[in-house]
């Protein structure tokens, strides 16, 4: 009897076991190890001495930390708002406003290209556009219109370029999810609304946007965390410069670990990044009433 009950009780865990093991080994353990590393002075010598909160004290005393946090917040906030808004715009356009399904799909595929393109190649394009010499595309244009000196775009507006490039390549993920959700709204709903004389604007406001509540939540939360952790494009485009004008917290952590080979200090900065994004995620969960999403199963054992 007991064996049968045990079997019954345990099978959810059997279903979960592969996932749990994978997660434990390649997420939980590395995460704990990162925490441990953050409390050591591990560096290129690969000898780790426990120094407690020493790294965290160092972070708070770091003369770069305030400007970097400022840059990070600006970068995350504007990238987030623009990415979500732009992917909504794209989804509504290609899925609802463009009536020809095939054309809509083609538009979407083209928008997917920047995100599939490896960052390494993508950045080459942006560097060509905003090349600081007269040979750069943007400089050719402004100099055609009479400017005498070329502009050092990445120096003068590096963060803006980074945000725009990020939005263009980052919008497609949200676009697909939003389009999918709009796609799953039954035609009848639109028809009924049109019979009532609803215009496109009110259909978007009253039917489409409410249907997108969960996808918007999902994209907002994942993008927030993703943006906090992202440094890849910035590293390739400006290396965080000039000075620290485009250095985000995550990039700073990367630089400490991989350029200065101070793994302990880098890990401590990563931990701060993770804590900030966790707090924000929890806040967003509350904002979107996440618990509603978890529905109880209907077959009781």
């Amino acid at each position: 009897m007991n064996l049968a009950r045990l079997k019954k009780k345990s099978y959810p865990y059997l279903f979960l076991a592969p996932f749990a093991i994978l997660t434990l080994m390649f997420f939980v353990i590395p995460a704990l190890a990162t925490l441990w590393m953050a409390a050591t002075n591990l560096d290129r010598k690969m000898k780790a001495d426990f120094i407690g909160f020493g790294n965290f004290q160092r972070i708070f005393a770091d003369i770069n930390i305030l400007p970097i946090i400022k840059v990070t917040l600006i970068y995350v906030f504007f990238s987030l708002v623009l990415t979500v808004a732009f992917s909504l715009l794209l989804a509504i356009c290609t899925q609802y406003l463009v009536k020809n399904k095939k054309l809509g799909a083609l538009y979407r595929v083209i928008w997917l290209i920047p995100s599939t393109m490896p960052g390494l190649v993508y950045v080459v394009f942006w560097k060509y556009i905003f090349n600081p010499t007269p040979g750069g595309f943007a400089n050719k244009i402004v100099m055609y219109f009479g400017l005498e000196q070329p502009i050092s775009w990445f120096n003068d507006a590096g963060l803006l370029i980074i945000i725009i490039a990020g939005v263009i390549s980052g919008a497609s993920g949200g676009m697909i999810l939003f389009s999918a959700s709009i796609n799953s709204i039954p035609e009848d709903v639109y028809k009924a609304a049109r019979v009532d004389g609803a215009k496109d604007r009110s259909i978007i406001r009253d039917i489409i946007l409410p249907a997108l509540k969960w996808p918007i939540m999902y994209v907002t939360v994942t993008s927030t965390i993703g943006l906090f952790a992202s440094y890849n494009f910035i590293l390739l485009a400006t290396r965080g410069g000039p000075v620290v004008d485009t250095t985000t917290l995550a990039l700073y952590g990367y630089q400490q670990a991989f350029n200065r080979l101070e793994y302990g200090y880098g890990a401590a900065i990563s931990v701060i990044v993770v804590i900030i994004s966790l707090l924000l995620t929890l806040l967003l969960f509350r904002l979107f009433d996440f618990n509603k999403l978890i529905r109880p199963p209907r077959i009781e054992d």
């Binding site: 009950r5 345990s10 865990y13 749990a20 093991i21």
Partner: peptide
């Protein structure tokens, strides 16, 4: 019953650790 749940959780964790 809850005890068993916990036990099986522990089992999974241990399984993982042994593997590691």
């Amino acid at each position: 019953m809850k005890m068993r749940t916990k036990l099986s959780m522990l089992f999974v964790v241990l399984l993982g650790l042994t593997l590691v």
